[in-house]
Design a protein around this nucleic acid. Sequence first.
DNA 1: TCGTTAACGCAACTGGAGTCCCGTTATGAA
DNA 2: TTCATAACGGGACTCCAGTTGCGTTAACGA
Lengths: 203, 203
Amino acid sequence: MNESSSEPGTVRPGGRTARVREAVLRAAGDALAEDGFDRLDLAEIARRAEVGKTTLYRRWGTVPGLVADMLGEMAADSLPRTETGSLDGDLTAFARLVLGTLTDTRQGPLFKALIAAATCDEQTATALHRFYRVRLDEWAPCVEAAVTRGEIPAGTDPHEVIRAVSAPLYYRLLASGDPLDEAAADRAVLVAVAAAKAGVFVA
Amino acid sequence: MNESSSEPGTVRPGGRTARVREAVLRAAGDALAEDGFDRLDLAEIARRAEVGKTTLYRRWGTVPGLVADMLGEMAADSLPRTETGSLDGDLTAFARLVLGTLTDTRQGPLFKALIAAATCDEQTATALHRFYRVRLDEWAPCVEAAVTRGEIPAGTDPHEVIRAVSAPLYYRLLASGDPLDEAAADRAVLVAVAAAKAGVFVA
DNA sequence: TCGTTAACGCAACTGGAGTCCCGTTATGAA
DNA sequence: TTCATAACGGGACTCCAGTTGCGTTAACGA
């Protein structure tokens, strides 16, 4: 709210400031994964990170602000994409990756918490959307390659295909509570491939 | 936690108690839709419902407890299913219904808040899953009818088809932030139908 | 190396969410 | 209608998340 001075951490971003930021973001991730979004207080994070809680309130202000920063960090480190030579193989690799993330003991609850945080705060929502945008851009090329190979029709929207694979897994995680297993992941891939070949994703 | 006495509202559920419950659930819905899950305090709901806040804490205990009760109520009133005579038509009606709910000024934010609450509390999560189970059961017959008509293969899992239609819409609402419009709803239907005809949902 | 000051840490403070006590209302059974 | 008591309401109290003030540390330019 104070527009006369710059945000803390921008003028002297090196050394101690960077160490504090790293420790806090890691501690926040742990705390989010363990306790969930609502049971979180910054004092707990400060203790874990061995940092004064004043620092947290001054630099990030609120829990959503901190979460938004975390998401920016997560979007920065891209994850490797496999190239198997077929759309089915590539999408299966992607689906397994998403499945692994969402069922991971630490990352699953973390993603739940991140999404919960995004529903409560506009800034966090923007950061979350940017994160998924990056993920989609990262994996879109495997769909484009399938178009080049002639597996699926020209003009197919790559983002739509990737979304179609992700969506059922997130739906199970967040809404329906149905089991998140390899069968679900593989079925999501089959659905997306069948639809793509039928030309449903052609713009 | 007090197992020696029954829950409040179970011995004298009529008259005043019922009025209080109704007023509180409505006020809670309004507050959730307007303020979101985290900015909620029971005192605010008590003011809206013109009820003492002591009553809220005594009957529901916490915000998640109240939300879980709300979800039970929402699952109770089923929503009408249209019969158009074709799988495509029925699923489009369903997709439009979901779309309408999620983009509604009041219900959209409410659902976001409900899902956020479910990620934070096990009791709420159970209530949410039950809610979607009811929804799925309600719409499954239109898939079974399509099997009977021979539109899609025998053995198709009805729930999977309905889930396939819902998932992309919820994914947009909660995760990616992509636009929630009729194009998205219609595409979700096309995807589900194409996959169903290809036999992807056969158990 | 030195000086300026950004950024941090400690501890005292504050406001409001959640609890508790006790008197009041009105439900449901006799 | 009467009575016992389930359920509600008001208000005081507690406790801790979040704030503030001020002294300390260390980043970075000269």
